[in-house]
Design a protein around this nucleic acid. Structure first.
Lengths: 117, 117
DNA sequence: TGTATTGTTCTAGCTCTAATAGAACAACTT
DNA sequence: AAGTTGTTCTATTAGAGCTAGAACAATACA
């Protein structure tokens, strides 16, 4: 799993890291049960602080995509791997775009219904 | 044009302001050539600092949505409408993906609302 | 032309978040 | 039993966002 981070981006490093893992899961590059590198390991190879990596991992845990256990590390959950993950990314993209355009949830949903009909 | 800001949001005030104007343009509430309130005026009515409003205006200018001129203020440009087209494309992509996965419109909308919350 | 309006630029200070750093600790693996 | 790994704690640094005040330059308009 290749991870590229942009320190100059407005998006925080921990969020970029979480996004990279999220995308890898969505694209099927990471299967359920698979282990991510340990935080210390990944921090070393990315030139980041351990806390920054753990921050990203904890974000993924809060989203239900990975499980964190001491001594074992971060493991991809089964819920994170099905086709819904891909859809979720698409949904996130659309909502972000809609938000960026200042649209409310209802306004976006009106567009969706129109498109679905 | 009604503008609502949430000071508690993680999104900066200047970005929220820009988003509101952006949405109004996308929805056709603001036509090309129309003038926005002056920064001092809008800052007063929103309870913000002039610099914060100008920061938002300058963001819109960098995006090509408005033109800024001293003595005249912020004027909506003609290029202001293609953002909506981009959103429409994204919406089409998501609905296609959802259909492919066998989701109903309501199931998709549930995801959208969850994402928007 | 003269005057008011409006964006531009500058300095300054405050607050909060992100990121780094080091350390001790608890749970799990082997 | 020993090593690995996430958890928690305190602390510091750097930068963004916001506010504030002032002076300035270009435009609009009477």
């Amino acid at each position: 799993m290749l991870i590229r981070l942009d320190p100059a981006s407005a998006e925080p490093l921990f969020a970029q890291l979480a996004g990279a893992v999220r995308g890898a899961i969505a694209r099927g590059e990471l299967a359920a049960g698979e282990r991510l590198p340990s935080a210390r390991e990944l921090a070393e190879s990315l030139g980041l602080n351990v806390h920054t990596v753990l921050h990203g991992y904890q974000l993924l845990r809060d989203e239900g995509l990975v499980e964190l256990r001491r001594g074992r590390g971060a493991v991809v959950t089964a819920a994170g791997t099905d086709g819904l993950a891909r859809l979720r990314e698409a949904v996130a993209g659309v909502t972000a775009e809609a938000r960026r355009l200042g649209l409310s949830a209802d306004e976006l949903i009106a567009l969706i219904r129109k498109e679905y009909a």
